[in-house]
Simulated assay, not measured.
Amino acid sequence: MSTYSIKDLEQLSGIKAHTLRIWEQRYNLLSPKRTDTNIRYYDDADLKLILNVALLNDNGFKISKIASMEEGEIRTEVMKLTERSLTHDDQIHALTICMIEMDEERFDKILSSNILKLGFEQTMLNIIYPFMSKIGVLWQTGAINPAQEHFISNLVRQKLIVAIDGQVVNGGGKKFLLFLPEGELHEISLLFAAYLIKSMGHKVIYLGQSTPNDDLLSVYKLHRPDYLLTVITTSPSSEYAQDYVDALSERFQEAKILITGYQVIGQDLKLPANVQQLNYIRDIKVMLEELAEVTQEK
């Protein structure tokens, strides 16, 4: 069982800690526990409740009404709401609840429903990717445990692999080599980049997680890609990111290198001439669209 501070509840639900304390005092909505040293904490049941409460409250339910409802009633209303709502924030809330409960069936149902309504790309851009970015930060700060993060990542990974395999590239276009640095295992952004690149008619050479430097060089020499793309989420750390980027630039001087990820965004890196930083996953889509325009002009 995980434990959470009131600050963790605030980060996960979007409800200010001050408001949570008022609800707790006025409506007995939460029942915090205390450690042996008298520090307040909350458990998984409290988190699931407050996520459901936040979702209902955002959709017009008064807090006094919610506080009078039984747990089963709250859950029923939340399920009704997420099945009919197209609001991205509502869907992200619902997926967060699935993560806490490790409810694979419910997660798959929500994801499949959104793909049907919005299409795969828009579901990824507007719901899954913001959701993954949110839980990635929460994982980094310890607000959620590794098991919850791995549970969701693997489910999303499965969807991405199926979507990528369903695409056929009939020659032409540019050649992209996608990889993660040694020690880097967070693959979702790289997989989605592969999906976007293939969807625009380009070829993808996918090396995936924790690619040894010598293997990367060997594949590069064999295929001579136009672009290298990597995502740095945890490894190397921001302390060594500049050295890593400089080494990539020097080793692959003839290629355009695209970098993104938690350890490079906002770090004020000095980028060599053949390195471009992508601050958001949407930047990949924009870059590909610009590339298509240049190709058409030629």
Rank of each mutant, 00 (worst) to 15 (best):
M1Q: 10
K7D: 02
D8G: 02
L9V: 07
Q11M: 13
S13G: 03
A17C: 04
I22S: 07
R26K: 15
R26P: 01
L30R: 08
P32T: 09
P32L: 12
P32R: 13
K33I: 11
D36Q: 12
T37F: 12
R40T: 01
Y42H: 04
Y42V: 04
D43H: 00
D44A: 12
D46L: 11
D46T: 11
L49N: 03
I50H: 00
L51K: 08
K62M: 09
I66M: 13
S68Q: 14
M69C: 10
E77C: 15
L81P: 01
T87R: 14
D89P: 00
D90W: 12
H93I: 00
T96R: 10
I97V: 08
I97Y: 08
M99N: 01
D103R: 12
E105D: 13
R106F: 05
F107N: 04
F107M: 03
D108S: 06
S112H: 07
G119H: 08
F120L: 09
Q122K: 13
Y129E: 03
I135E: 03
G136P: 03
V137A: 12
L138S: 12
L138H: 10
T141F: 13
N145K: 12
N145V: 02
N145R: 10
P146Y: 10
E149A: 13
H150M: 11
S153E: 02
N154R: 11
L155A: 06
K159A: 02
A163I: 04
A163P: 05
I164Y: 00
D165Q: 11
V168D: 04
G171K: 09
G171A: 07
G173C: 06
K174C: 03
L180V: 03
L180I: 03
P181L: 11
P181C: 07
G183C: 04
I188K: 09
I188G: 05
S189I: 05
A193T: 03
A193I: 08
I197D: 05
V204G: 05
I205W: 06
L207S: 01
Q209C: 05
T211G: 06
P212K: 12
N213A: 13
D214C: 10
S218D: 09
H223K: 14
D226N: 15
D226G: 01
Y227V: 12
Y227M: 10
I232M: 15
S235L: 13
E239C: 02
E239N: 14
E239G: 00
Y240F: 15
Y244K: 09
A247R: 15
L248G: 00
S249N: 08
Q253F: 09
L258M: 12
D268V: 00
L269C: 13
A273V: 05
N274K: 10
V275D: 06
Y280G: 01
Y280L: 06
I281T: 06
R282L: 09
D283T: 03
V286D: 15
V286F: 14
L291R: 07
A292T: 11
T295S: 14
T295G: 03
